[in-house]
């Protein structure tokens, strides 16, 4: 049984003249335990709205979201238990920090779960470790650390609840290269160690290729394609028709090919590119 099963889900925002948000129509999506799913699509295609439904924060108009076979919207008792199993990290999560100390902020989720004091402390330490920060930071105020550190603290606040599925909405946006690479590597490690399920929303195709097993492509409130990451990116017709960007390295390799080098058509990772270039070197 899939961990998350979205069935014929549709949702529309209340119409107003100013705020334009994308409605969702007929979304079907199955996510298996342990998978890393990438959710891509142009801005305003409904990615954030969809993960808010999966996280149980917005109730769909039609259709259901099943977590481990349980309908999360069916009754509030079931949902209260499930809420902590679905960890949702919003865009710019550093804006939600509010406690006097970082410790208290990370402990907010576990505290709401009603855990014991010792248990909370254990989880806070574990979480801060996962996002690669030193535990000496815990006694500081969340307002005196850098932007990148704030974001890690905010992610730790969700990880501390030990969710079975972690949903990250553009976790690296606005961070420098180093910052985003390290956050992603910690997330990857976290996922590997806990055999967790992960949904990653990103506009950075390098991150998507490097991290995800499967990709769902959204456009205008619908899922236009869903499948293995390698397959989706190997389909030039699909990429073109859905206006999906490709990783930087793919663009470079394409340029090289146009210059007359005998290279493979679709190269997505630096490693592949290196192998290709080396192959070329030895065949000449």
């Amino acid at each position: 049984m899939p961990l998350i099963e979205v069935k014929e889900l549709s949702f529309s925002y209340e119409k107003s003249s100013n705020l334009k948000k994308q409605d969702l129509s007929n979304i079907n999506l199955n996510i298996n335990r342990g998978e890393i799913i990438g959710l891509i699509g142009p801005s305003g295609s409904g990615k954030t709205t969809l993960v808010q439904q999966i996280g149980g924060l917005l109730r769909p108009d039609h259709g259901t979201v099943l977590f481990d076979g349980l309908d999360i919207f069916k009754d509030s008792k079931v949902f209260r238990k499930l809420r902590y199993k679905i960890g949702l990290v919003f865009q710019n999560p550093e804006e939600q920090l509010f406690s006097e100390t970082i410790f208290k902020d990370i402990a907010f989720g576990p505290h709401n779960m009603g855990l014991s004091r010792d248990n909370i402390a254990k989880r806070v330490l574990e979480a801060i470790n996962f996002v690669g920060l030193d535990k000496s930071i815990l006694s500081k105020s969340p307002f005196e650390i850098s932007g990148g550190e704030k974001r890690r603290v905010a992610i730790a606040g969700v990880i501390a609840m030990r969710p079975e599925i972690l949903i990250l909405d553009e976790p690296t946006v606005g961070l420098d290269f180093e910052g985003s690479r390290s956050i992603l590597s910690y997330i990857k490690q976290y996922n590997r160690e806990n055999k967790n399920t992960l949904i990653l929303i990103s506009h950075n195709m390098d991150d998507i290729i490097n991290l995800t097993d499967k990709v769902a492509v959204m456009s205008a409130g619908e899922i236009k394609a869903f499948g293995k990451t390698g397959k989706i990116f190997a389909d030039p017709v699909l990429l073109h028709s859905l206006k999906i960007d490709v990783p930087e390295i793919t663009k470079i390799m394409k340029k090289l090919k146009e210059k007359g080098f005998n290279l493979k058509d679709s190269v997505f990772t630096e490693r592949e590119a290196l192998q290709e270039i080396l192959r070329l070197k030895y065949t000449i």
């Binding site: 924060l57 902590y84 919003f90 939600q96 989720g109 709401n112 606040g157 969700v158 609840m161």
Partner: peptide, 9 residues
Amino acid sequence: AAQKARGAQ
């Protein structure tokens, strides 16, 4: 919404 996701009532 973000706080609700962390179980804020």
